[in-house]
Write a protein that binds this DNA or RNA. Structure first.
Length: 499
RNA sequence: GCCGCGUUCGUCUAGGGGUUUAGGACGCCGCCCUUUCACGGCGGUAACACGGGUUCAAAUCCCGUACGCGGUACCA
């Protein structure tokens, strides 16, 4: 047994599209696994038939892949500890539950839902808000602890619906050393006799997670804080089996900007995407999302903020994960997206933008699109914005009304004709940003007009806009023919433009 | 209700007894750069939940209160 090899897992339930919080949990597990040179395992926790959603599993696979989180063992990859879908491991859980019953650490319970509810109602009347099925109450219930042995035998042989419950020891303090939170302890008397096997023959999460984590040699369990309260049950299970529990780390939860839980409804109201799918569709770059998510709750020893996945693997430190819930801030995510776009080469940016450009029906060569990327790189937040600057692909049909009002005049039109005449005579070799600049200046200076005086109209005539990328590189990109044509057409188009 | 976990600028956070006039980033505002916009640079705005202790000294340690979050299922 090679105990020294770290093994971490992400164990989502296929109950819907992968949640952004789930992706963060997966990421932290992945980072630690890679950093420790260990394995990253994906396990599908589909023990609740009622909540199963068709297609959810496929969404988990593609979302992780999109984010750049590679899986070593899982339903698709296989591996020595499979199957990696809990629904395919029923017998394993049944056997383990029976082991516990045989050891006296668990027992059969035959109570119906109504009977349990009756018990709770009794306690409620007596002023006890929520009496659990546990140390204090199991003696009053119908189970293999209270019923005569032969009756239990007969109920079992008649296949009367029943569950298997954990027999929580009385009067114990269960200690947990959390990697993030330090020591946390719980009194066993307030821990429920958790159902381990449901009457449908499937295990509950609690049994399955312990059995699988052990059988799959998981060394570190990194999961959301919402699991902290049930961890003592898991610890008691490890103890009952005689197994060593893995190291535990409970991550702070992601909160909505309004402070509450980042639920689907809540988040959608605030315009925040909740599922990974929505982030993909909104045009976020996987690297940016990963970077943002890593910093949502974790902070490096220095003040660095921009990390690639490899950087993260190197720098990540579970001890530096914060304790408090974190609010989601879309502005910051957008900033990360912008930063990541800027770190790309022109050619990489161009490929990211190409689908959007083609979607709008423009045909552009790779070289031209690279120029577009260079022109726009420092002024976009999303790759799709490459396609939004339509005058880079087609002559402007409309002209900014305020700009026209401010800049357009007979005099301005005349100056443009001087530019047109001069620029049209330039050779291909002369068609570079700096030469065009010098020649334009020359043409205007001959009539005693400074270039700066004309640049705003020049831009307006060429693009229809009053602002945008640097003018001369833009002109170089547009090319002589286009520039001359647009200059020539502008007066008529602007003249007929509505005010 | 009970159990558990939290609480530093609006947000993500650094700091974990004296180095702090509490630092960085996002956002916001201003100035500079740029004959546009953006980028960039500079500057500004803005926080230790509250109350008790411990100590020469507390944002930092302890207790309490408040507030927030999670759990309290034959859901995960």
């Amino acid at each position: 047994m090679s105990e020294s090899i770290a093994r971490l897992r992400f164990a989502p339930s296929p109950t819907g599209l992968l949640h952004i919080g789930g992706l963060r949990t997966a990421l932290y597990n992945y980072l630690l696994a890679r950093q420790l040179g260990g394995a990253f395992v994906l396990r599908i926790e589909d023990t609740d038939q009622k909540r199963f959603v068709e297609g959810a599993e496929a969404d988990i696979f593609r979302s992780l892949q999109w984010a750049g989180i590679s899986i070593d063992e899982g339903p698709q990859e296989g591996g020595p500890h499979g199957p990696y879908r809990q629904s395919e491991r029923r017998d394993v859980y049944r056997e383990h539950a029976e082991m516990l019953v045989a050891k006296g650490a668990a027992y059969y319970a035959f109570d119906t839902e109504e009977e349990i509810e009756l018990m709770r109602a009794r306690y409620r009347e007596a002023g006890i808000e929520s009496a659990g099925y546990g140390v204090r109450t199991r003696g009053e219930m119908r189970n293999s602890l209270t019923l005569p042995v032969d009756e239990v035998e007969s109920l079992l042989s008649q296949e009367v619906p029943h569950v298997v419950r954990l027999k929580v020891p009385a009067g114990r303090t269960v200690q947990l050393s959390d990697l993030i939170r330090g020591d946390v302890s719980f009194e066993s008397d307030v821990i429920d006799d958790q159902v381990l096997m449901k009457s449908d023959g499937l295990p509950t999460y609690h049994l399955a997670v312990v059995v699988d984590d052990h059988l799959m040699n998981i060394t570190h369990v990194v999961r959301g804080e919402d699991w902290l309260s049930s961890t003592p049950k898991h610890l008691l299970l490890y103890e009952a089996f005689g197994w060593t529990a893995p190291k535990m780390a409970h991550l702070p939860l992601i909160l909505s900007p309004s402070g509450g839980k980042l639920s689907k409804r809540n988040a959608e109201k605030m315009g925040i995407p909740v599922t990974v799918r929505q982030y993909v569709e909104a045009g976020y770059e996987p690297d940016a999302l990963v970077n943002f998510l890593a910093l949502l709750g974790w902070h490096p020893a220095d003040d660095r903020e921009l990390f690639s996945m490899d950087d993260l693997i190197r720098a990540f430190d579970i001890n530096r994960v914060g304790l408090a819930g974190v609010q989601f801030d879309l502005d910051k995510l957008n900033w990360f997206n912008q930063q990541h776009l800027r770190s790309l080469t022109d050619s990489e940016l161009a490929s990211l933008g190409r689908p959007f450009v083609e979607e709008k029906g423009y045909e552009v060569s790779d070289a031209a699109l690279e120029s577009v990327a260079a022109l726009l790189k420092e002024r976009i937040t999303f790759a799709r914005e490459l396609a939004d600057v339509t005058y880079l692909f087609a002559d402007p049909a409309a002209f900014d009304a305020k700009g026209v009002k401010k800049r357009w005049s007979i005099e301005a039109a005349e100056r443009l004709t001087w530019l047109e005449a001069h620029l049209s005579s330039l050779s291909n070799e002369q068609w570079t940003a700096s030469t065009i600049h010098d020649e334009a200046e020359k043409a205007l200076l001959a009539r005693d007009v400074p270039l700066g005086k004309v640049m705003p109209v020049f831009r307006l005539a060429l693009t229809g806009e009053t602002s945008g990328p640097e003018l001369f590189p833009l002109i170089e990109y547009l090319g002589r023919d286009t520039v001359v044509r647009r200059l020539r057409n502008a007066p008529a188009l602007i003249g007929t433009s509505p005010e």
